[in-house]
Nucleic acid binder design. Structure first.
Lengths: 260, 260
DNA sequence: AACGCTGTATTATAATATGAAACAAGAATC
DNA sequence: GATTCTTGTTTCATATTATAATACAGCGTT
């Protein structure tokens, strides 16, 4: 017996309040937020005050408006120091960065999206940037497609039947048969590539980090400006370095490359 | 009429649950956490399930243990892209890093602690590390003392009357008169320094980023290994670069250096 | 000076959170 | 291999707690 999904308990309301703070809308007043979420102003007010007590939100003493607080830095510290993938990733990311001189980033699946959990920026004057926390749907971009392709078959099927392919740029794959074919190709090839599927002019290469069971844990990726992406020799060198690094990393996580 | 402080509403309980996840204790079972917090297992269970629905926590499908979830990456993205200090800080931090070749970090006050909100690591083989999210009490370390010294007089008084000075290392200032004198000295000098007050062998220099009213918004700091900290010429060069960068940064934030 | 807009405090009412106990499933022990 | 601890999870009557209308207080504009 489940409750109607339109009703939330107070904790869920608190979380809906928190997730309302976005890059596009980083500050809220009580009444605006109340209108936005459909909760009464009193409720929103009480929730915000509770959140403030634990510095999940800050309140500007002058404007009385609310914004995200400073606890998240602590959570990030905990995440980065305890998530096994993250801890182990750094030396590999660093090595890959010095070999390719391109921006290296690490991604995981969160729900139906790819999220960047760590990044090292290229030392070059022209470089791609991939902010920690940035997201994309699982069908757009090399990292996304890589994570999807090396997920379990059940996950892929479940995802593909539920997803609605909306183009992000004019190079985004938005035909289902094309996406299925792409997944097969990525699996066979061992890495994914994309050019401008999410950001025009931005090329990307991505290889999976596999756990002992061969299921993807993360995607190690390079973000490369189009000019350099199209240089054949640099492109080949990037792929080679990426694949070798990802394999070494997977082995470190307990995956046996030769048995697969 | 206020409630007894030992009782929490459900949102506060949820936040106490979240903040229980730390670097020392990154995973919890329901009953352990229940015992730790003094809430009943059912309550903790229900809270964790609600938090899980919004990916504030993840649950290991095998061990059934809980850990922090992936929302925090999103919050960090929002924070880093919307906090005005953070946005403006990057080019200055970068410049300071290339001038000194030492680890640069940016800190703010959270409650009675200093928290690191951004860092750029030194390119050298021997370097100090300052993880984003790391904390220290406001009396230990250059960044802490700098933030404290350039706070408002009311804040300083309130802090000093409430604080209990516990030594973090054997170089931590733990006499109240010494701390008061140090604050005055920092104010006169315009920057703070420390050696091994928080971490043995780690020296630090810190200058304030001031808002138009002359109140500290953040502290820009250098973390320097003791060997290099003791090299007079390098030390002098670091101080000069730090102070100039912090002043330029303050000016960019609207502070008038010459009127102060 | 009056209005409209904030965020905040109050309070009776209704919904929801609570914890004891039962359950299910896995690990450790004998 | 059976027993006995654990563990996470579900249930449910009870009482606490969240709720939304309302009132209030402060600010900026008209």
């Amino acid at each position: 017996m489940k409750q109607e999904s339109s009703s939330y308990n107070s904790i869920e309301k608190a979380m809906r309040v928190l997730t309302a703070f976005s890059v596009d809308r980083p500050t809220w007043g009580v009444r605006e937020l109340s209108a936005h979420l459909g909760f009464s102003p009193s409720t929103v007010q009480r929730i915000l005050q509770a959140l403030k007590r634990f510095s999940f939100v800050d309140q500007d003493p002058k404007t009385r408006l609310y914004r995200l607080g400073k606890v998240y830095f602590r959570f990030m510290d905990v995440l980065q120091r305890t998530h096994t993938v993250n801890r182990a990733a750094f030396p590999h990311m660093k090595q890959l960065m010095s070999q390719t001189r391109e921006t290296v980033h690490l991604n995981v699946i969160d729900g139906t999206e790819r999220v960047c959990i760590d990044a090292l920026e290229s030392p070059q004057l022209l470089k791609a940037v991939m902010p920690i926390g940035s997201r994309s749907p699982l069908y757009a971009g090399a990292s996304s497609k890589c994570l999807l392709a090396f997920s379990s078959d059940e996950f892929i099927e479940q995802y593909l039947t539920g997803v609605h392919l909306v183009p992000v740029t004019r190079h985004t794959i938005c035909r289902m048969d094309a996406l299925r074919a792409e997944i097969q190709e990525i699996r066979g090839r061992g890495y994914a590539m994309s050019l401008g599927e999410r950001t025009p002019g931005l090329g990307s290469l991505s290889a999976p980090i596999l756990n002992p069971k061969g299921i993807v844990q993360a995607a190690l990726s390079l973000a490369v400006p189009e000019v350099r992406f199209k240089e054949k020799r640099h492109f080949a060198r990037c792929i080679k370095a990426l694949v070798l690094t990802a394999e070494a990393f997977s082995e470190e996580m307990g995956y046996d490359v030769h048995r697969a």
